[in-house]
Simulated assay, not measured.
Amino acid sequence: MNDLLTIKELKQRYHCSNDKIYELLNREDFPAFRLSDAPKSRWYIRADDLDKWERQRCKQKYL
C-alpha cells in the first residue's frame, strides 16, 4: 500500500484541529513531506509510513 494521505484525510483520521495537524507536520520524526520547497506547497503522508510511525510511538509509550 503506497497511498498518500492529505492533511484533510489526516484530520479525519485523528479527529483534531488544523493547529494540531500542523504541529505534527512540523515534528522531525513525523513522516510527512512536500513535493516542493514553496511555502504554499501541499503536505503528503504515506499511509504505510504513518502506520509505522504510530506503531513506534505506541511501543515507546508502553515499554
Rank of each mutant, 00 (worst) to 15 (best):
S36V: 03
I21Y: 02
R55G: 05
C58M: 11
R57E: 12
L50F: 02
L35A: 03
Q56R: 07
R42Q: 12
C58S: 15
R27Q: 07
A32F: 03
L4R: 04
F30A: 02
R34I: 07
R34W: 07
K8W: 05
D48M: 11
L25R: 07
K40T: 07
K8R: 14
K59A: 08
P31S: 12
R57G: 09
N2S: 15
D19M: 08
K20N: 05
D48A: 14
E23C: 07
A47I: 01
R13H: 13
P31D: 10
N2T: 14
Q60H: 15
P39D: 12
L5T: 13
Q12E: 15
I7N: 12
D48L: 12
P31E: 06
L4K: 05
S17W: 13
F30L: 03
Y62N: 09
N18M: 03
Y44C: 12
E28Y: 01
N18P: 01
P39G: 04
Y62R: 10
K8P: 01
R42C: 07
R42G: 10
C16A: 02
P39Q: 07
K20W: 09
E9S: 13
K8A: 11
I21W: 00
R42P: 06
Y62M: 11
W53K: 00
A38W: 03
Q12D: 14
Y62H: 15
Y62E: 12
D29V: 05
S41R: 05
P31K: 02
Y62P: 00
R34G: 01
S41N: 06
Y14W: 13
R46Y: 08
K59E: 11
E28F: 01
K59H: 08
K11W: 13
P31A: 09
D19T: 10
D3Y: 11
A32Y: 02
A38E: 06
N26P: 01
